[in-house]
């Protein structure tokens, strides 16, 4: 749609601008403020320059958390996206099955995040949880509190449980928008099931898949509540992701300077990723 040039449209954007500026810009400036100062208490601050940034960028702890988080996001995407596509392809297209599937599958998305954590914490416990009990009856010495590998598997399975439905819903929305004529043409050409998927369904899902991948990446990159409730970042530091580390540093140890510097670096990474997302999306829109 070609849009008219009208600078008065700014007035319509103004409420949003003020509201978001209040919740985003002012707090962010506070963080910037802390990141370049040092304090010895008593509300006395000293200029520290880029000291905290240098410290953060060379900090083993930050590198470890960043790597863990990237690895986690990668695993999440590698499991959830193919699984989501597979389920969406096999969902019913009409009849009573559609609303039932949609409602039941969206259910985990609507559960408060710490309740998701609580559900899995209970579910995985060896003494009272269905999963933990079953696994231990099968002779597996399952213990997510002490074994780092088990903690990781639990957190990943929990995230798959929580968020795969998002990918399913997006892919499903893409699939139902394909007109029947496409499938008829494929049938006449004698296309195989794989060819239909590769040349009709996948290109049509392109856009929603893009949204799915990027939303999942962003959200897994700032995951906090669920692993915090289940493992508390442990055992040791094995499931301490970036957000958990940040909150530990800022609220737990009250290291304002390093925490603020880490926030800014963290935010810049997110900003760069959002920019990629936005550019790809708008280019995609322009092509259509």
């Amino acid at each position: 749609m070609d849009k008219t040039w009208n600078n008065k449209a700014w007035f319509m954007v103004l409420p949003v601008l003020l509201l978001v500026a209040f919740s985003a810009v002012i707090p962010l400036m506070t963080v910037v403020n802390y990141s370049v100062q040092d304090t010895f208490g008593n509300n006395q601050f000293f200029w520290a320059g880029t000291e905290w940034y240098a410290e953060m960028l060379h900090s083993e702890r930050f590198h470890a958390a960043l790597l863990r988080n990237l690895f986690f996001s990668f695993i999440i995407l590698a499991i959830e996206v193919p699984l989501g596509i597979l389920i969406a392809l096999n969902m019913p297209r009409k009849g009573w099955g559609v609303p039932v599937c949609l409602v039941l599958m969206s259910l985990p998305l609507l559960i408060p995040w710490n309740v998701v954590g609580t559900i899995w914490q209970v579910f995985g416990r060896v003494d009272i949880g269905l999963l933990g009990r079953t696994l231990s009856m099968l002779g597996i010495n399952y213990n997510y509190v002490q074994n780092p590998l088990h903690a990781w598997v639990t957190v990943i399975v929990m995230d798959v449980w929580h968020w795969t439905s998002l990918v399913v819903l997006l892919c499903y929305a893409g699939l139902v928008s394909i007109p029947d004529a496409f499938y008829q043409a494929a049938k006449i050409d004698g296309a195989s099931r794989w060819a239909v998927f590769r040349y009709i369904q996948l290109p049509k899902m392109n856009r929603v898949l893009l949204i799915a991948v990027l939303l999942r990446f962003m959200d897994s990159f700032m995951i906090y509540t669920e692993p915090f409730v289940v493992t508390g970042g442990g055992p040791g530091n094995s499931t301490t992701f970036l957000s958990i580390d940040l909150v530990k540093m800022a609220v737990g140890q009250f290291d304002l300077g390093p925490a603020a510097a880490m926030s800014i670096i963290y935010f810049l990474i997110i900003l760069a990723l959002s920019w990629v997302f936005y550019t790809v999306m708008t280019n995609y829109d322009a092509e259509r």
Partner: peptide, 19 residues
């Protein structure tokens, strides 16, 4: 402006807790 709005959707809440 649109991009700036988007970055706020993507901002990690942990960054904002203390401020």
């Amino acid at each position: 402006l649109f991009f700036w709005l988007l970055t706020n959707r993507m901002a990690p809440p942990a960054v904002f807790v203390l401020p």
